[in-house]
Amino acid sequence: MALDMLTGPDAGELLEAALSTAGGHLEDWRVTQVDHRGEVTTVAYQATVQWPSGRTDDVLGASSLAPEDEPPQVPGALTLSDGENRVCVWRLPDDPGLPGLTTAMQAPALTELLRSFGINPGGLRTDLVSYRPKRRAVIRISAAGGVIYAKVLPPGDVEALHRRHEMLYRAGVPVPHSLGWTGDGLLVLENLPGTPLRRRLTSAEAALPDPHDVLSVLDRLPTAVLGLNRRRPWSRRAPQYAELIGHALPTEAERARQLALVVAAGLKDTDLGSDPTHGDFYEAQLTVDHAGRIVGLLDVDTVGPGCRADDLATALAHCEALALSSPRHADRSYAMSRLWGPVFEQRVDADQLRLRTAGVLMSLATGPHRVQRPQWQSATTRLLDRMEGILQNRS
């Protein structure tokens, strides 16, 4: 099976075979991310590679190919087969799904791009902020002209996201201003003011955002959002995520399935909603000023019509998940959940809010395995425990 081939002990042989064709020798490797969807599994690795020019720390990617898929014709991406499975392997920035990474991570191309936007490229430095193989990446770009961000997407998605940023920015939503986009999938965004809220949660003295301020950010989403594509909310995908948990952790398969059935039954007779929504609204998407006021909103890829209760449930579920996964965030995350929850329950139906919070937690319970967190099995179990507790405390 592709999942075992890409994450098991034999994965090193696969990576070595791919690197050796380019003159490299794999010295060490570890899985950093797993995305398992049906027939296709995509994995990211952190690797130490010895090249003729010296030793480097590299990010590698590999993705299985479905039987009907054609091997990608991308320089730097190599397709291998063991006679039963076919796998495409690459070294960053040669991701076959994200051609814009080459522009974003190679100085000559990026220098030219910055100049085209009127930005001084002197002292250019790039940092990979996040990377989901074949899906998206975020690059922080520092130069004499200031700090900006490049969001890398499949080329067919980038223009639509640029226009979404424009629409929200003109409506007064505190999103990053888009400077423009490129045909290979690069969206160039201005830096937001403030400090990421998640970073603030490590300080016991930092002010927490008032829940009414949180609601006001969502209230500023314009009605034009209702004309965008609808995205299925996290809460309604609980059965799908329960199945993923069952594949990764068979000992929790039945409990996850039963919890997902409770969520699905509670949502069965509810409509999808006609509110302007963010779609993935939680603390990592918000920046705040010194007083805890929200001054920035990130990642608007998911903005569209939906139900306000799903946005609020996502925020509360992430508070719970962050507290369970990060001891340095725990006290403030729980405090924020206690601060926000009662006010959110005045805005939307309290029982539905709790039900949807539990549903979002099911999606988050796949996270420890996806990012290969140490002791991910126990982390998954703790998230399911919390989900079970929320469902038992419904009114």
Rank of each mutant, 00 (worst) to 15 (best):
D4F: 13
G12W: 07
G12L: 05
L14D: 00
E27S: 14
T32F: 04
R37L: 10
G38Q: 09
T42P: 02
W51I: 11
R55W: 04
G61K: 03
S63L: 08
S64I: 04
L65Q: 09
G76R: 11
L78N: 04
D82H: 14
N85V: 13
V89F: 02
D95A: 12
L98F: 06
P99V: 11
T111N: 09
E112R: 14
N120E: 15
G122Y: 02
L124Y: 00
L124S: 04
D127H: 12
V138Q: 12
I139W: 02
R140Y: 09
G146L: 07
G146V: 08
V147P: 02
A150S: 04
V152L: 04
D157M: 13
L161S: 01
L161C: 09
L161K: 05
R163S: 11
R164K: 15
R164P: 05
W181R: 14
L186P: 05
V188A: 12
L192E: 07
G194S: 11
P196R: 09
A207V: 11
D210E: 13
D213C: 10
S216C: 10
P222Q: 14
R230K: 10
G246A: 10
H247P: 09
R255D: 00
Q258W: 06
V263I: 11
V263G: 00
D271I: 12
D271A: 06
L272A: 15
T277S: 02
T277N: 04
V295D: 02
G296R: 00
G296T: 13
D299C: 09
V300Q: 00
D301V: 12
D301G: 07
D301H: 08
V303K: 01
V303M: 05
R308W: 07
A313G: 14
A313D: 00
A323F: 07
A330V: 10
S333V: 02
R338E: 15
L353D: 00
L355H: 00
L361K: 03
M362H: 05
G367L: 12
R370M: 15
P374I: 10
S378I: 08
T381C: 11
L391G: 01
R394W: 00
